[in-house]
Each structure stands twice: as structure tokens, then as C-alpha cells.
Write a protein that binds this DNA or RNA. Structure first.
Lengths: 246, 246
DNA sequence: CGAGCGTTTGAGACAATTCAAGAGATGTGG
DNA sequence: CCACATCTCTTGAATTGTCTCAAACGCTCG
């Protein structure tokens, strides 16, 4: 583990702060992010919520655990891992996040981040100041609704995740979740590159690295997919779905 | 399993619908529920959100999975289990809920309940019509804030839950969670009665009934607690905390 | 008081982990 | 741009934790 920066100033690792407001209306992931189904007028209002856009390199942190809550971050491009280190020194991965997804939701009630967010590849994010977001949500019922929808969905995903039992089930569900999310973003649902290591997948699914490796090998033997290092090609989505749902 | 009622009308099993509005101001779990920290005037406004109060007997359902979303339910007294039956016919317990807690949050984005809610003992609930709640939240920033806080907290709890590895860790964390929640409600934190069976605890923690039993026996041998049928007496909370955090 | 369900306990089976070693990538400095 | 050092990934073997199956025990409630 890289030592954590002791100063608790958020986003200090941003390389490049865009000087120009890039309004949400022009954002490529608008229809996956909060502003889903908004009118052009509303989109202009939403821009006031976007406090700042930041660009990060691979392995840079967006925020560290326990830093004071500086707002939610909407991922615009790239990929992010939220994680924490437990008492035994092992990494626990809370989740992997793709463009259009919101991170920092768990910090709303405690006012400090509950995990650290690190970029798995070069990544752009929009910081949404929480107070501005609440104000905007008051004026724009659609925004309020959408924010609650996002949180409700995250909750449902977590509850699903909690009840996956076998290792094969978890790995299959994980791959299908990524596949689905890539498809929504206009990428191939059957052929994609994992932005994370086997180790990180294991830390997300509560499985040993070796187990992830073995299961991918096994799926490959069963002709369900081809896994060539980080590249995944799904050959039998239906069979994987069957495994995922048990 | 009791066969499900095929009609999808919500709350049809309510035994007794209170005729009088019981305003939130007089509710015994007010400070645990949404109206935390509200002024008397705000509490009157909040009452308009409470569409109806319902009383249920043990084993009655508040709602069934896939029924159309009829709002959130705030538990006023009693205890509720949210669960679903998976493909293999096994029960998966999403959570146990105590007075002051909100259920139905996962239905916000899908507009139908994602699990069934059954009462573990005689239970009173308040139904919060979602549209009225959103309207009220627009007028009362505190309410909006509080609702988001509740969802944020639920998310954090779920993420915690997802990373508990060993069976002992899970059972210890489960008992401590109950203990903490009872304490908040004015009951003893060290001496309480479980409202659910070993089987249901297992279905919540993804462990076999036998494992729950064995671990309780083991904790008892280690003098960490006394488990006499459903009655639990915690003798060494600190050691349990150590086990829970691993 | 007996029936039936929930709980406890034991023994064997099995899934996933740990430990260990080797193969394959990746990145860095010369 | 290559060579070496360093990660990451894969594979095997032994170990461990939890589950399954089976039987006995003990509440609870009619």
C-alpha cells in the first residue's frame, strides 16, 4: 500500500482542473448519470451543482477514507475502485465504478468518506457539492427523484451481492454486471478489458485471487468465455446467467 | 412457505386501520424515524405524508415481493423480516427491521417491492406515500436531508455486511447490531429476546442453521454470552466486537 | 400430555483457502 | 529498445471452515 497523504484536503491529487464549465448537456454520459431525462433548461440549472471537474491518472486517489465529505463524484470517463483496508491489513473492495456512476453516497450521513476511491485508469470526474445538489434537488423535482432512484438501485445491487453464495456464482454475476454496464455505455457486452486485477476482483467478491483464477480457467474449459489476461470474451452469456442466478 | 396471495393489492392483510391520525409528534419512535430533529410545525406537515397506519399480527405480510410500490413503511412497533425465495426455493433474508426503521427503499427505482415483508411479532407500521413524501421533502429541506441520510446509512450497513467473512464474525456482528439497535430504542443492550429463529438468522447471514447454533454454543462456552433459546445475554461485548471486526 | 417444530450435536463431504512454486506480464533504467 | 527486476497470474497439494445428512433433544402449543 502506498502511504496515505496525511493532509485531509480533498482532491489534492487532481492533475488538471478544467477552467471552463463543461455543461452537463454536452456530457457523453449524461443519460447514465443523474441528469437522465432532463430538459435543456434543467441541464443548465444542474451545471451549477457541478462544482469542478477533475482529471486523474491511473493509481491516483479521488478521495481517501475518512476525509471530510466534499460531495459526490460522478465519473465521466475511466474506472474507479472504492476500497478500504481492514484490521488485518487486507483490502476490501466496496465496488468498481464506471462512467455515469456516482461515488461517495455512503459519506452523506457520516460526513466523511467511508472508503478510498482510486482510479484504475486515467479518469475524469465531476464533483457535485452536496449542499448545492440538495438545493438544486429542491428546485428540480426530477433531480430529487433521480438521486433517490440511484440510491435505491445501489441498495438493491448491494442486497443482491450479499446473497451470492458460491464462488462460481459470484464470478459469473460479476462478469455479467460488467458486461451489462459496458453495453449501456456503448461498448461491447461480450468482449471487453477488465480494468482491475484478479486480486482486486477477489477483494471485491471475498474470494482468494487463486479462486478467481481457477474459476476463470474453469469457465474457459467449459467454453463459457475466453480470458486472456485482462481481456474477456463471453461465449455463452445464457449459461453464465444460469450460473449467476445459481 | 404460506402460498402468496395472488392479488397484488398492497396491505390487504391489515387487520385494523386506525381511524384517527396519530401525528408524528406523539410517536414513540419519532427520534429514530424520519422526523428526527424536526420542529413541531414541521411534524404537523409530516403527518400529511403518513397515508395510513396499519396493525399486523405475527406472520402477516406488510407487502409481497413484486407488488406495485405503494410507498415506504416506517415501523412503529414490533419487528419485520424482509425476505425473498430464490430459484432453489431457499429463503434469502434481506434484513430484520425494528421500530423507527424504514422498509421498501429498494422499490423506489423499480416501482415494485424487491422483497416480501413479514411481521415477526405483532407490528404497527406507518405507510408513507412516496409521492407525498417527495412533495413534503421539497417543502421541508430537513426531511429531504433525513431521507437521504437514511438511505446512505443503509448503503453503508450493506457494504459492511458484504465483507464479513467468517461465520463467527457474522454472528458476532449480527448480535452487536441488534444490541445497539435495542439500546437506541430504550431496551437493554445486553439482555434481549431474538424475534427471529436460528434458521432465519442463517438465511440472513448466508450460513446454515446448524452453523448458527454451533457458534452460539461456542460463544457460550467461551463465556461471551448466554443463549437460552431466543433469549440472549451478552457477557463480553468487547470480545464480541473484537470478533466482529475480525 | 403428546405432537410437531425448532434446536443441538456429531460425522463425513466438499468448497474455498493457504502455501508454494513456476510462468507470464509489465515497467524501468541503461 | 532490450534486459532484468518486479508484479501478476496460474497451477498443484494440503488444510480448514462450513455444509449436508442424520439423529436426538427440548420447547411450545393445542
Amino acid at each position: 500500500m502506498k502511504p496515505l497523504d496525511s493532509k485531509l484536503k480533498p482532491c489534492m491529487q487532481a492533475q488538471d482542473i478544467d477552467q471552463l464549465y463543461q455543461i452537463c448537456a454536452n456530457c457523453s454520459v449524461r443519460e447514465l448519470c443523474l441528469p437522465v431525462g432532463f430538459t435543456p433548461a434543467e441541464l443548465v440549472g444542474l451545471d451549477k451543482v457541478v462544482s469542478q471537474r477533475y482529471t486523474f491518472e491511473r493509481k491516483e486517489h479521488i478521495y481517501h477514507i475518512q476525509q471530510p465529505f466534499a460531495g459526490l463524484y460522478a465519473i465521466q470517463s475511466g474506472a474507479v475502485k472504492c476500497y478500504r483496508i481492514n484490521k488485518e491489513g487486507d483490502e476490501e473492495v466496496i465496488g468498481f465504478f464506471l462512467p455515469g456512476e456516482l461515488i461517495g453516497l455512503e459519506a452523506i450521513h457520516t460526513k466523511h468518506y467511508e472508503s478510498s476511491a482510486i482510479c484504475l485508469e486515467p479518469t475524469k470526474v465531476c464533483r457535485l457539492d452536496y449542499e448545492s445538489l440538495l438545493e438544486a434537488a429542491n428546485k428540480m423535482p426530477n433531480l430529487q427523484r433521480q438521486l433517490l432512484n440511484v440510491m435505491s438501485q445501489r441498495l438493491a445491487i448491494q442486497e443482491e451481492h450479499a446473497h451470492q453464495r458460491t464462488a462460481e456464482q459470484r464470478v459469473a454475476a460479476f462478469l455479467l454486471s460488467l458486461s451489462y454496464r459496458y453495453r449501456l455505455r456503448g461498448y461491447s457486452a461480450i468482449d471487453f478489458a477488465l480494468p482491475m486485477s484478479r486480486q482486486e476482483i477477489g477483494n471485491y467478491l471475498n474470494l482468494a485471487t487463486e479462486t478467481i483464477s481457477r474459476i476463470l480457467t474453469h469457465f474457459q474449459q467449459e467454453k463459457l468465455l475466453i480470458a486472456k489476461s485482462k481481456n474477456i470474451k463471453l461465449l455463452a452469456m445464457n449459461k453464465l446467467k444460469q450460473i449467476a442466478l445459481n
